[in-house]
Design a protein around this nucleic acid. Structure first.
Length: 262
DNA sequence: TCAGTTGTTTATAT
DNA sequence: AATATAAACAACTG
C-alpha cells in the first residue's frame, strides 16, 4: 500500500483527528514495532501534549506536538485508521494514540517500517536520514538538476529515497510507462524531452492519486499491472514482467524501448 | 509447500 | 564516491 499518496492520505486522517487535541494515552499492543523507544516511555513522553499539523516527507509521517514528535513509517503494509472508540480494533493495530474524541490507530501487518519518538524537534532530521526533495512538491528546475547529478538506471534512482522522496515501486513503474521510458534506461542517456516527460508524468500521476484517493489510486495502469497476460492500456501489447533494481517491474515492450546493450 | 508482496537497511561487489 | 546486487526483516495470501 504505502507510497507517497497513501502516506499523504494517512497524514490527512491523522490531521483531522488530532490537530489541537491532547494525547490521553498511547497504547502499544506490539512493542516490536517501536524502533527507538520503549512503550512506557512513549506513553509518558506524549501524554498531555497537543498535536500540531502533521507533516509528510516522502513516505514518512511526522506528527509533532508542543513537545516531542511521533514518527511513523509504513513499510509495505502500514495504515492509519481513526475510530471514535476502542471498539473494533484490528489485530494488526500495534500502536494506538488515544484522544478525547477517539483514537488513531497505527496498523502494520508485516512490521516493516515502525514507530519512532523524537524527544525534541531537532531530533527529527537525524531520524529521517538523508531524504531527497519530496516528489509531490519538487519543482521542474530542481528535478532537472537532480537528473543531471545522477547516473545509472532510472528506476532504481526514482526508488532511492535519498535521491527523490516518496516514489515507490508502483508509482515508478507507472510514471515510466506514461513517459514511455524503459526502467533500465540510464539517466545520463535520457534526452531533455524524456526528462521533461518523466517529470510531467510523475507529477501528474502523483497529483491525480493524491487528489482522488482512495478510488483514484487504482489507475488504468495499476489495474493492468500484475494480472496474468495483462495488456498495455495504450497499445494492447502484452506487458512484460522483469526485475530492475531487485524489484518486480512491469513494462510495455512496445511503448518502452529497451536500452541499447552496453 | 512455496513463490510473491506497494519498503528499507546492510553487506558485498564493482 | 557512486552504483549494483542480494539478502534479511516479517507476516500473510494464493
Amino acid at each position: 500500500m504505502p507510497e507517497l499518496p497513501d502516506v499523504e492520505h494517512f497524514r490527512r486522517t491523522f490531521a483531522r483527528a488530532s490537530v489541537g487535541r491532547r494525547v490521553e494515552a498511547v497504547v502499544v499492543t506490539d512493542p516490536g514495532i517501536l524502533r527507538n523507544v520503549a512503550a512506557p516511555e512513549l506513553h509518558r513522553a506524549l501524554r498531555g501534549h497537543r498535536f500540531e499539523d502533521p507533516e509528510r516527507r516522502g513516505k514518512w509521517l511526522i506528527a509533532r506536538t508542543d513537545g516531542p514528535a511521533l514518527l511513523l513509517h509504513f513499510g509495505m503494509t502500514g495504515d492509519v485508521e481513526w475510530a471514535p472508540a476502542a471498539a473494533g480494533r484490528h489485530r494488526h493495530d500495534r500502536v494506538i494514540v488515544v484522544l478525547d474524541i477517539g483514537e488513531i490507530r497505527y496498523r502494520n501487518m508485516r512490521k516493516l517500517g515502525g514507530v519512532w519518538l523524537a524527544a525534541e524537534p531537532g531530533e527529527v532530521d537525524e531520524l529521517l536520514g538523508r531524504l531527497g526533495p519530496d516528489a509531490l512538491s519538487v519543482k521542474r528546475k530542481e528535478f532537472f538538476e537532480l537528473m543531471g547529478s545522477r547516473r545509472g538506471r532510472v528506476k532504481p534512482a526514482l526508488l532511492d529515497q535519498s535521491f527523490l522522496a516518496g516514489v515507490g515501486n508502483l508509482l515508478a513503474d507507472e510514471a515510466l510507462w506514461r513517459a514511455r521510458i524503459h526502467p533500465a534506461r540510464r539517466i545520463e542517456d535520457l534526452s531533455v524531452d524524456e526528462r521533461a516527460a518523466l517529470f510531467r508524468q510523475l507529477r501528474s500521476v502523483i497529483r491525480h492519486t493524491v487528489d482522488s484517493y482512495p478510488e483514484g489510486i487504482r489507475t488504468r495502469w495499476t489495474s493492468a499491472r500484475g494480472r496474468p497476460a495483462a495488456r498495455c492500456p495504450r497499445c494492447r501489447t502484452e506487458l512484460t514482467r522483469t526485475v530492475v533494481g531487485g524489484r518486480a517491474t512491469y513494462l510495455c515492450p512496445s511503448c518502452q524501448r529497451q536500452p541499447a546493450a552496453s
